[in-house]
Structure formats: C-alpha cells, structure tokens
Nucleic acid binder design. Structure first.
Lengths: 192, 192, 192, 192
DNA sequence: CATGAATGAGTTTTCATTCAT
DNA sequence: TATGAATGAAAACTCATTCAT
C-alpha cells in the first residue's frame, strides 16, 4: 500500500471503472458507488479526487477522446497519400482500443449527453472538428466537394458506430470498416 | 361527472408530453411529475394509466415508431420505381413529423436506451427490420449487393440523424436529405 | 386521516417542531429527519412542503416574528400613554408566548444566523426596525435623545434575552422585565 | 528535521485560524480542513494536536476569554476609583483586541454554543462570574443595589455586543462605549 | 513531526410509487 | 376518474477522524 502519488493512479482507475461500468450498464445512470466499488475504493474517495460525479464523467469522456486522438495520430503517421489519410481515420475509429464494447458504448452515451451538458458538448465539438478536419485534408485533393464528402463519411462512421454498439452481433468489426471504406472509395471514384 | 373514454385521451396526452419533455431536457432523466404536469394531470394518474414510468416511456417510443411507419407507408404509395422507394424511405426519415426537434431527440434517446431495456430493444429491432426491408426491396433490382447497400444507407440515416439532433444548426433538413440521397445514387450508379 | 387541506396543517406542524427541536438541541444543527419525526411525518414530506431545509427554518423564524409582532400589537392596544407604549413592548418581549424556552432559544439562534444567511438577515432587519420604531414613538415625548434611548433599551432587551436563554435559572422572567423597565424609567426621569 | 517546541506554535496558529475562519463564515459550521488550511497545515495535524474538533473550538473560546481577561486586568490597573473600575470593564469589553470583527463574531457564536456544549458552558460561566464580580466591586460603594446594577450593565454589554456584531455599520465602537457608560452613570446618579 | 490517503457515518434531497378519499 | 398525501429507497456529497508512512 504505497502512500504517495496515489492521485493519478486513483483518478485513472476511476475513469476506467466508469467507462466499464457505463458500458456494461448501457446507460449513464450508474452510481458513484458502483464506479468506486469497481475501482476498489470508497465513493467518498471518488468525490475527494473528482469533486463531483459530473467531473468524473467528463474526465472519462476526455479519456476516451484522448485515446482516440492518439490512435488516429498513430495511424496517420503511416498514411502515404490522401486516400491513406482517410483510411487511417476510418480504421482508427473502429480500432481495438476504441472499440472494446465498454468503451464504444460509453462513448455513445457521452455523445448523446452533449445535448444536456455543456461540458460534454464542448468536448464533443472538439471531436467533431478534429474528425472533420482530418477527413477534409484527405478529401480535398480527391473530390470536388470535400466538405460534403467529409460530412457524409463522418455521419456514416457515427451511424455504423451506433449500430455496432446496439447490435454487436450483426456485423463484424472488419466488415464495418469495409463498409465505410467502400463508401469512401465510391466518393473518390466519382469525385473527379 | 365520470367521463367515459378518457383513457385513450389521457394516454395520448401523456405520451406526447413525455416526448416533448424528453426532447426539451435532452435526456431520458425526466420525472413522471414533469411529464404529467405538462399533460395537465397528476403523476398519480399517469401511474394509473401506465402502471410504471417504464411502460409510459415504452409507449412513447412505440408512438414515435408508429408515426414513422405511417409516414413511410404514405411515402411509398407515391413511389413509382425502386429508386423511388428508397427515396421515399429517406425522405420520410427526415420528414416533418418525425423530425421536429423534440421527437428526433426523444427518438435518439430511446434508441440508445435499447442497450439497457429489453422492451425498448424489441421495438428497436422492429424498426431496424422494417427500415432494412424497405431499403432492400428498393435496392434489390438496382445493385449487386443490396444487403450492403441497405446497411450503408441505414447507418448513414442514423448517423445524419444523430448529427442533426446534436448540431441542428450545422445543416438544413433538406441538405441532410440531399446528402443521404447522393449516397444512394452513388450506390445505384456503381451498382450495375 | 383527512385527505384535503393538509398542507397548512403540515407546514404548521413542521414549523413548530423545528422550533422545539432547535430549542431542545440548543443549536441550529438539527436534521430535517429529526424535525419531521417530531412533527409525525417523513422527512420526504417535509421537503415536499418546504422545498429545502433552509426554507423551513426561515419559515420557523418568520413564525416567531409573527407571533412576537402580534403580541406587541396586542399589548400596545392597552397602552394609554407613551411610557405605557414602551412598557408594552418590553413586557411583550418577555411574555409567555415568546418566552417559552424553546421559542426563546430558537429565536436567538436564528438571530445569530443572520450573519451567514441573507434571508434570515432580512427578517432580522424587519424585527429591528419594528422594535426601534415602537420604542421611538414611546420615547420621543419623554426624552431629549429618543434615538439613544431606543437603542439602549433595544440592546438591553437583547442582552437580557440572551442571558435568560443561557441561564434561565439565574433570574425570573418577571425580574427580567423589572430590570429592563427600571432602565426605562431611569432614562425617562433623566430625560427632561 | 523534527522541530522542537512546535506544539505551542501549531496550537496557537490553529486557535487563531479558527477564530478568523468562524468570524468570516459567521457560523460555527466551519470544517477542520478550512481551519487547518488557513493555519498552514493539514487537518490531520490539527487532530494530532487537539484530538478533536470540539477540543480545538474550546481552546479557541478559552483563548478569547484569556485575552479578554488580560485586557480587563490591564485596564483595572489604571482605575483610580470605583466608577473608574466599571469604566475600565466597559472599555475593555469593546477594546481593540476583543473587538476585531472576527473575534467578536466568534465569541458570540461560542457564547451561544454554551447551550449545547458542556465545556463551552463552563467557560462561559467563568466569564459571567468574572464580569459580574468586577462590576460588583465597582458598583458596591456607589449604588444601593449593586447586584441589579451589575446585571443590568452586564446584560447591556452583551446586547450592545450582539448588535455591534450583527450591524457593525449601525454604530461606531466609541458610540457603543458611550451608550453603555451613559447607562452606568445614570445608575450611579440615581444610586444614592 | 507531518501528511496524503482513506473511509464510515451521516445529511440533504429526489422520485417512483402507493393509497385513501 | 382523479388527486393530494405520503413514504421508502436511494443518490450525491460532506466531514471528522484514523492510519500508514
């Protein structure tokens, strides 16, 4: 039982426990006690470190976005051409890390919560801007209306994501990626 | 003084109040009292008619799906060819009735709730099947893989819907329809 | 168990229970549950009727002030001359109703709480103004500096009240009244 | 590294921090953490030195009383006659040290707390006895009922003190002293 | 000596639900 | 049919206090 520097460890544990708990419950209506118990501590300690439930959930959403951003950046390093950039974004969206069931479900619930929480909305806006910007850079040299193309693929990613979460058995993850990439290539082929 | 046949009127009022309330709040976390008050009655009466909050919310979701189904059927009457059928489905998805902000937002929240509620999931499955079936009938004569096409357009509809709810200012409703129809036509053009 | 019109009954019961509970405890740190239990209901019902603990305590303070005001008005009716007015105020301050131990102690705690609660302070200001105004009317024809006289007697009342609450055994209630009236008469005698 | 003789320094810092904190908050409901933070240490250390919150608050009250006692003794040294003794007590009561807002407010809160805390009550009794004894010694050669005179002036001091704390803007400190001294002189003049 | 870590016990508040009329 | 009355159960949050280092 180490004594110093527990804060980052505890915060991390809580954030991860929150994501798993929300993912399993399939709803944001999980109690601080549930999350704390899963993280192996008392709910009082959770409050001590985050101040409020909302702050904890915002931290969880931020965590997901951070991971996602890192994964995208990693994939982009390997992209050799514009089409590759788009593919990187798509693959990263459904990649392992971001697509464990708990993470994906949590993410979706946070996503919808943007409607009723300012802090969550702000994080969502960042996500939207980044996704869109990445897609735009890829589409610009390839199609005449990169804006529409980005919006289409962005929406398609969200839609497929949504369905993957709600019917995980309906389609394999690889199939989901193929479906989105097919749409991308259709856009590029017609883009001239 | 006992009024006859109040039941359907009351139930209807509650269902509509629930949708509006959820839409405005941007979350399913609305109280029975709020809904009942908006419907002009006591929360006790709401329980009398629905037995529980959950039943009431399920009825609200069913109501949205019923309206949506009717709207699609209506649009299909006018369809003269397979492409027209697909277009009918798409247009109906974003048509007035189903796309008033409150309805759209409520629908999305119910949609996600399928993860944690069996009854809701069952309704969602019906929706998915119907949507898919309608798209399949349209795509079958037009593309080689109608299944993939239907899934793509279904997901795209969901994704655009999601974004329309969260960023209603970002795109006009008409533009949303155009975006989806463009994807449909791209599929058809390449489908040969 | 009557069904209608319970609200005023319940509110009244809660206000009185709060006063007794605070009086007995000798502190404002009493829980809503304690008060509600003493009033014969659940704490949930207390919240239902008052919205919050603070509102309930403010209502209790207001109740004390209302009773006090009524008692003073009643005594003033009998006053035949200026000195009689002052005497009426003094006697009312220590009169039966306002001076049951629980009421007196509660009143003092509310009094001090004005330091940290805006709502309480506003009520206290009303009390101060009324007391002062009543004393001023009495002193004006009798002394050259009615303002100083009123402030002196006002402060003396508060001080004696404070000591009566903290050491109820030290002096009889009648003796307390005599002590204050003696000071009043000293002022009047020298006032010429 | 262990510093010797830290105990009195720490205790003193905590006692003073408690007084300021209570004074600023205008209530005894301050947390040990707040006090400890203001005193520049952890709440754990506060417990180490005082054992419990209550002990700390009692120490704070004792501190105020000690200061007050010293100030009175100092003033009495200068008194040349009985009336001077009384004046010394009155002036000391409102003198600088004891009448900084934080101290005065804290004192009053401790004063009321005597109702619910035995230890506090014991300290209060000491204060009352000393104040009364000092006044008695002064009044005895001057009035026929020194007991009543002492009680009157003691209560007046408390009442003015109370009002000064709650409405510091209403009267200057000097005016408060004058008001009490005027009452003293009235008593003495009539005392023959 | 000193503190970050940790928690149990409690407090206010909310809400779906039941019941008597 | 309709509702005001009523509550049990639970949730977020607080805080004095203890403990290991």
């Amino acid at each position: 039982m180490p004594k110093l520097g527990m804060e980052p460890i505890r915060r991390d544990a809580l954030v991860k426990a929150a994501i798993v708990e929300i993912g399993e419950a399939g709803t944001l209506d999980v109690t601080v006690s549930q999350i704390a118990r899963r993280a192996g501590m008392s709910s009082a300690l959770a409050h001590h470190y985050f101040g409020s439930k909302e702050e904890m959930l915002v931290a969880a959403m931020r965590h997901i976005l951070t991971l996602f951003g890192a994964e995208v950046r990693g994939a982009l390093i390997m992209a050799r051409d514009p089409a590759g950039r788009i593919e990187a974004v798509v693959r990263a969206s459904f990649a392992s890390q971001n697509f464990r069931p708990a993470t994906a479900a949590s993410w979706l619930h946070f996503y919808l919560q943007a409607q009723s929480s300012d802090k969550t909305r702000r994080l969502l806006t960042v996500y939207h801007r980044r996704l869109r910007s990445n897609l735009m850079v890829g589409f610009r040299p390839l199609v005449s209306d990169p804006e529409a193309a980005s919006e289409t693929i962005g929406a398609l990613i969200d839609g497929v994501y949504l369905r993957q979460v709600l019917r995980p058995e309906a389609m394999s993850n690889a199939a989901a990626i193929e479906l989105v990439l097919a749409a991308v290539h259709r856009l590029i082929r017609e883009g001239s």
